[in-house]
Simulated assay, not measured.
Amino acid sequence: MTSEAAQTDVAALSFEDALQQLETIVRQLEQGNVPLERSIEMYERGAQLRKHCDGLLKAAEAKVEKIQMNQDGSAAGTVPLDPETA
């Protein structure tokens, strides 16, 4: 699989699927019984998966908002979830 094809493949993954693959790679690398060439390929794939997961998390964080309520119970608008970063 070419690097470009691998990146396209990673981009199509959901967060959960990418994280599961990343956890599997980490577990296999930690066991230490993977040949060097395969370890390098797995590490590169893991880096792509981590970057993808990070991007998905940042996109989700940008969408998460806290709804403020008026005294009558109606929605007054939205504010960022973490007002310290706004």
Score class of each variant (00 low, 15 high):
M1R: 12
M1H: 07
T2K: 06
S3F: 07
S3T: 08
S3R: 08
E4Q: 14
E4C: 08
E4L: 13
E4I: 06
A5L: 11
A5F: 00
A5R: 07
A6D: 12
A6R: 12
Q7I: 04
Q7V: 08
T8D: 11
T8M: 10
V10D: 00
A11G: 11
A12Y: 05
L13V: 03
L13C: 02
L13S: 01
S14Y: 02
S14T: 14
F15N: 04
F15Y: 14
E16P: 02
D17M: 07
L19I: 07
Q20S: 10
Q21A: 06
Q21C: 07
Q21G: 06
E23Y: 09
E23F: 09
T24H: 13
T24M: 13
I25D: 03
V26C: 04
V26Q: 12
V26T: 14
V26L: 09
V26N: 08
R27D: 15
R27C: 11
Q28E: 15
L29N: 02
L29E: 00
E30L: 08
Q31K: 11
G32R: 02
G32E: 02
N33P: 02
N33K: 12
N33T: 10
V34E: 04
V34Q: 01
P35W: 05
E37V: 12
E37M: 11
R38S: 14
R38A: 14
R38G: 01
S39E: 11
I40N: 11
E41R: 09
E41L: 04
E41C: 01
M42F: 09
M42S: 09
Y43P: 00
Y43Q: 14
Y43I: 05
E44M: 10
E44I: 05
G46S: 06
Q48N: 15
Q48S: 15
L49C: 11
L49G: 05
R50L: 15
K51T: 15
H52E: 01
C53N: 00
D54G: 01
D54H: 01
G55C: 00
G55R: 00
G55S: 01
G55Y: 00
L56K: 03
L56W: 00
L57N: 06
K58D: 13
K58I: 03
K58E: 10
A59I: 00
A59M: 02
E61I: 08
E61D: 12
A62N: 10
A62P: 03
A62Q: 13
K63D: 11
K63A: 09
K63W: 03
V64S: 06
K66H: 08
K66L: 08
I67D: 03
Q68H: 09
Q68N: 11
N70Y: 06
Q71A: 15
G73M: 08
S74R: 04
A75K: 14
A75S: 15
A75R: 13
A76D: 11
A76M: 10
A76K: 12
G77Y: 03
T78N: 05
T78H: 07
L81K: 13
L81F: 10
D82G: 02
P83Q: 10
P83N: 03
T85Q: 12
A86V: 09
A86G: 07
A86F: 04
